[in-house]
Design a protein around this nucleic acid. Structure first.
Lengths: 219, 219
DNA sequence: GACATTTCGTGAGTGCGCTCATATCTTTTC
DNA sequence: GAAAAGATATGAGCGCACTCACGAAATGTC
């Protein structure tokens, strides 16, 4: 059936590659299904079988796309980081703002993005971004993500630093900021104040201290 | 056999309770076996069956003593924290030392204790001490441990603070220090410098900054 | 269009952490 | 000492994340 003579737009493009088309669709379905389940049932109690079922595929297929359950979560954080970096880059008001404002916006954007998924972030993120797991099959991707994030922070620091001062501290700052960011996340997870106001206040204060330590008091 | 008429010290004490005696011994055997295996094979690749086998008991027995594999690791960290607290308390030179020295000794003691087990600490500690895991069966014990640690830090801070100054910052400090400590651990895990010198230098510097922020610059 | 090649979905299978009904041993009671 | 009561060790079993041999489907080649 269906020998209809409906020619698609061009003979040469049989629907832009049926494989690649389907692949993207499946990948998206997996991520979407997983996030929904993580959000409603939590990370640990969501089974890969359930994710597959919700995405309409076999369980094994999930692992053709992701190395592990945590790897699915990681791809979410990749989007999150990209989103936050873009939020800072594309904000014209920040072009000439002081460093602490840029960093504040960066972290704030991340937290806003993460907020709806708070429930599973503690379990997933700390696990997924844990740099110390030597066995983690996905750790390469996590490292890449971390690197991308740190490169952006370095960029921000350097464009706010008089170029005379590129001493040993400069390369340390992004490392310290990474640790600081993880700390903020922990704080945020704990924070029961309305709209996470304590976290934002903590952010504001600590960034001021940190940046002024960097700029004036280099010992 | 063995109907010898050897009366033990008192009729009422049949060898000091055979049950309790064995219980302690088994518990110790489990922890010791587990640590050895964690150290040599890593945390994730060590199976509970292997731990049981090495300890000379059935697999199920392990779970009569510990709720989970991670719980075994947690008991190790309990010892670690107790050890570090004792190291600060029992050092007479520190009695009247400035706060940053006490904190330095505290963290240094912890790192020294952890050093031989570096291999599994990333995976285990961050998992075990992660406060956000709602499902963790052992999380109550982890909370207790965290609380004990924070109480000690609070003690140190208060005995170094002029009692006029007990403002909002005071209660925040231990929380911040907890985050800071986790950050130091991450740094330490990454640190490839000889004898972890970078970490110690970072510790020294950052503690000075933190404490002086606390003491003079309260905004 | 037909065959060879490559890619990918599939679900039974594997070994894991952990549970639970049962057996075994200790303690208590008489 | 025997028997009841209680505590503890046991290992088969469960559901999980993850693997793998296989077949089906898309693509490349003529």
């Amino acid at each position: 059936m269906a020998t209809k003579s409906k020619p698609s737009k061009t003979k040469k493009r049989p629907a832009a590659g049926k494989r690649a088309q389907n692949k993207q669709a499946i990948r998206r379905r997996i991520v979407k299904s997983a996030l929904t389940l993580f959000q409603t049932k939590g990370f640990a109690t969501t089974t890969t079988k359930a994710i597959a079922r919700k995405a309409g595929i076999a369980e094994g297929t999930v692992f053709n796309y992701f190395r592990s359950k945590e790897d699915i979560a990681l791809s979410f954080f990749e989007e999150e980081v990209d989103h936050a970096i873009a939020a800072v880059r594309e904000n014209p008001r920040l072009r000439k703002a002081p460093l602490e404002e840029k960093l504040f916006t960066l972290v704030q954007s991340q937290l806003e993005y993460l907020a709806p998924y708070e429930r599973f972030i503690g379990a997933a993120l700390i696990h997924a971004l844990n740099p110390a797991s030597h066995l983690g099959a996905f750790s390469h991707r996590a490292q890449q993500l971390r690197h991308r994030y740190l490169a952006f922070v370095t960029e921000l620091v350097e464009e706010s630093t008089p170029k005379q001062q590129h001493d040993a501290l400069t390369w340390l700052v992004p490392e310290a900021f990474w640790i600081y960011y993880l700390g903020v996340l922990l704080f945020w997870l704990y924070d029961t104040s309305e709209d996470k106001q304590h976290t934002l206040a903590f952010l504001d204060r600590s960034l001021h201290v940190g940046v002024s330590f960097l700029t004036d008091g280099r010992r």
